[in-house]
Design a protein around this nucleic acid. Structure first.
Length: 679
RNA sequence: GCGCCCGUAGCUCAGUUGGACUAGAGCGUCUGCCUUCUAAGCAGAGGGUCGGGGGUUCGAAUCCCUCCGGGCGCGCCA
């Protein structure tokens, strides 16, 4: 609602300025600091004053008098040095909120083009940890947001099942544990196989460090896995598949689902790279280095700004630029030295690097590769849909068409910014400017451990690490908080509380509520931070259920539901609809300011969603949910609805409560958080 | 060495494209509030040279420069 009026005001003022002053300006709008100053304001007259060389306040006065009527707006006032403050028609706004609450989602397919979001991407060689949870929570929430705005989204979870990490675990099974493929198969059937591999992976790393010559096993195993031969390959397949299933289970616990799992093994078998290599070579995007330290490698030159610079803001400039900064002006001497700004794509032994395969994958996502995967059903989702995986077999005939997106978001942590940049540079070098511009690295900072958290888990830190604000997690060291452990701990804490509060409920019901609250706490915790803030993980914060947390928001929704339920139980007959005039009476300033504020926030969900999508920042929505919950809790203590004697007022308050409940539930749903019936 | 990110209250963090008064939350601390729709809640108090210094502007936490401090990345690893 708010978003619609915001747009309307923006358009009206913009058009008016165009007409009356012949100036085209973008009209910025904001929320005034106080309700008495209206619901919407614009400082546009300051900008206009500069251009017209006139006092801003005078322009504002002129405009306030001549702007004319805007639907939903009662008046426009001049304030301060030249602000235009806009006052909304409260009754009309409320009527809209009450009518449309919870149904603001745009029709699916409004934009038929497909958006591909790739997230999770955990190496299938160990249990998922909390860093992976941040990735999945961000990716999944962004997907929900895009779908809410009517976009058609495909969720991909890339599985690097033939990489070094899997190879290391295979080495562990074969050489450390002396296991046969049959033994591993038996182990893989155990529920906590991912935990077993977590420990084994750390042990193998240790084992390599003790005796460097053992690294030969890794090289040999990696090659065997890539070529699909021998027991190593067999074990690799077993491990890769079993661990992926563990990850899917873990992610299912927090409501994260996927459409398709493209796997690296198929990228190899179907010769995606060979195809991409041909294209890159033909276009001259990669060159064979004949001299210098990279002699014998195929390299991609970097650092040129390739003309079309407009849609890449300065901060997205090439992270690794080395040498000459300003193109042309100075630093030309650098051009003489080769190997300066280039990235190796194919090693001198002919094997392709990770980034090379990534370029092929990215091309496939846009349907630019000229090759496609085949697919087989891999798993069933709770919603009944299938999760498909790429396959080297014949594939199933009824598989949907994946890929062929027009926009791609890769949810990957910021440490991989450079590689993501190389991938986009590859697209651009192939002449796919359009697709390059629609490739977004949805980056976020890592989850690290607070030194205290690391110590609580029994790790001994170096004196240097103890002094730091946080310690980076490390799969190789086995240093990290496993996702399932944290979820278990959250569920344990919540179920004790639920059992105490609702002893009459069946155990199964209690468990379900505890789970919902646990996930609410977890997802909110992962989403409340903005993307480029490093999360220094601390158990105390993550296990908190008070204050700015998921459960706080859920609790507000539960309270709202309780009121509605109690009123229904009392059987009190209340008017079905609230007339605008009636609502206006209770919303009128100054007495109605507090209820009006709540209605205003409730009506601002669309605005929060738009903001979150445009800035690709789910934290904006998390903040919104909290603010709405907070406003409601405040209202809850001021107004006692069940004991309200004035039937008309009671009906109005109840309508407000219902609207808030729907909007809050909708906001939480977008965050992947369910609101329980009781808690 | 080069690049990216960060530095706001004791702690953890918000702060849309520069804006209006007293720079906001949450946690923690202190004080109140459960015979009233569940206290996973509410009200109040205290707490800040927005890392330092310059500059642009009518106006800067926000933009530019510089310095300091921290993190990450820069491999024929992924």
């Amino acid at each position: 609602m708010y978003r619609v009026i915001e747009e309307r005001v923006r358009a009206a003022i913009g058009a008016h300025i165009e007409k009356a002053y012949g100036q085209a300006v973008s009209v910025g709008v904001e929320r005034p600091p106080k309700l008495e100053m209206g619901e919407l304001a614009t400082p546009v007259c300051f900008e206009l004053a500069k251009r017209l060389k006139r006092a801003p306040r005078l322009i504002a006065q002129e405009m306030a008098g001549s702007i004319g009527a805007i639907e939903g707006v009662t008046r426009v006032e001049v304030a301060g040095g030249g602000y235009l403050n806009v006052f909304l028609d409260r009754a009309a706004f409320f009527e809209n909120v009450a009518r449309l609450a919870g149904r603001e989602a745009m029709a699916a397919g409004a934009d038929a083009s497909k958006v591909i979001v790739e997230h999770t991407n955990i190496n299938p060689n160990k249990a998922a940890h909390i860093g992976h949870l941040r990735n999945a929570a961000l990716g999944d929430t962004f997907v929900r947001l895009l779908r809410h705005t009517g976009r058609c989204v495909e969720v991909q979870n890339y599985i690097d099942n033939t990489g070094v990490q899997v190879a290391d675990v295979v080495v562990g099974f074969e050489h450390l544990e002396k296991k046969s493929p049959g033994d591993v198969r038996t182990l893989a059937a155990e529920p906590q196989f991912d935990y077993l591999c977590w420990d084994l992976y750390a042990r193998v790393t240790q084992w390599f460090e003790e005796e460097k010559t053992r690294l030969a096993f890794r090289v040999e195993t990696l090659k065997a896995i890539e070529e699909g031969r021998g027991t190593a390959a067999e074990i690799g397949v077993i491990v890769g598949e079993a661990i992926v299933r563990c990850h899917l289970r873990t992610m299912e616990r927090l409501g994260v689902e996927y459409d398709v799992l493209p796997r690296e093994s198929e990228i190899l078998h179907l010769k995606f790279w060979k195809q991409a290599f041909g294209m890159l070579r033909e276009r001259g995007a990669i060159q064979l280095a004949t001299s210098g330290k990279n002699a014998g490698c195929w390299v991609m030159p970097l650092g040129k700004s390739e003309g079309g610079e407009k849609n890449r803001p300065a901060r997205d400039a090439l992270p690794h630029q080395g040498g000459s900064g300003q193109a042309g002006a100075t630093g030309e001497s650098e051009a003489a030295g080769e190997n300066q700004d280039e990235k190796i794509i194919v090693r001198s032994d002919g094997t392709v690097t990770y980034v090379g395969k990534d370029i092929a994958y990215q091309l496939w996502k846009f349907g630019l590769l000229g090759l496609d995967f085949r697919y087989a059903r891999f798993a069933k989702r709770p919603d009944g849909d299938d999760v498909w995986a790429s396959t080297s077999g014949a594939g199933e005939a009824d598989a949907p068409q994946f890929g062929h997106g027009s926009e791609v978001y890769n949810v990957i942590d910021s440490r991989q910014a450079f590689l993501q940049h190389v991938v986009v540079a590859g697209l651009r070098a192939l002449g796919h400017e359009e697709q390059a511009n629609h490739s977004t690295h949805f980056s976020y900072e890592m989850v690290a451990l607070s030194p205290r958290a690391a110590q609580e888990m029994g790790y001994t830190l170096s004196p240097d690490e103890e002094k730091r604000a946080y310690v980076e997690m490390s799969g190789r060291r086995g240093l990290g908080v496993k996702a399932d452990d944290l979820i278990d701990e959250l569920e344990e804490a919540t179920s004790a509380e639920v059992a105490e509060r609702h002893p009459q409920l069946a155990a199964e019901e209690q468990e379900k509520i505890a789970h919902t609250i646990a996930i609410g706490a977890l997802r909110y915790f992962l989403l409340k931070f903005t993307r480029n803030s490093v999360i220094s993980f601390d158990f105390k914060d993550a296990l908190s259920f008070e204050g700015e947390t998921g459960p706080y928001c859920q609790y507000a929704a539960v309270r709202a539901r309780n009121i509605v339920r109690k009123v229904e139980e009392q059987g009190g007959k209340l008017p079905e609809t609230i007339s605008a005039a009636g609502a206006g009476q209770w919303l009128a300033a100054p007495g109605g300011n507090d209820v009006w504020e709540l209605a205003l926030i409730a009506g601002s969900l669309g605005s929060a969603v738009t903001g979150a999508v445009e800035t690709q920042e789910p934290a904006i929505l998390a903040k919104f949910a909290f603010q709405l919950a907070q406003a409601f809790n405040n209202f809850y203590h001021k107004h006692h609805i069940l004991s309200e004697e004035d039937a008309a007022k009671k009906a109005f308050l109840l309508a407000l409560v219902e609207a808030v409940e729907k909007q809050l539930v909708a906001a939480l749903e977008l965050l992947g958080i369910e609101a329980p019936e009781r808690m």
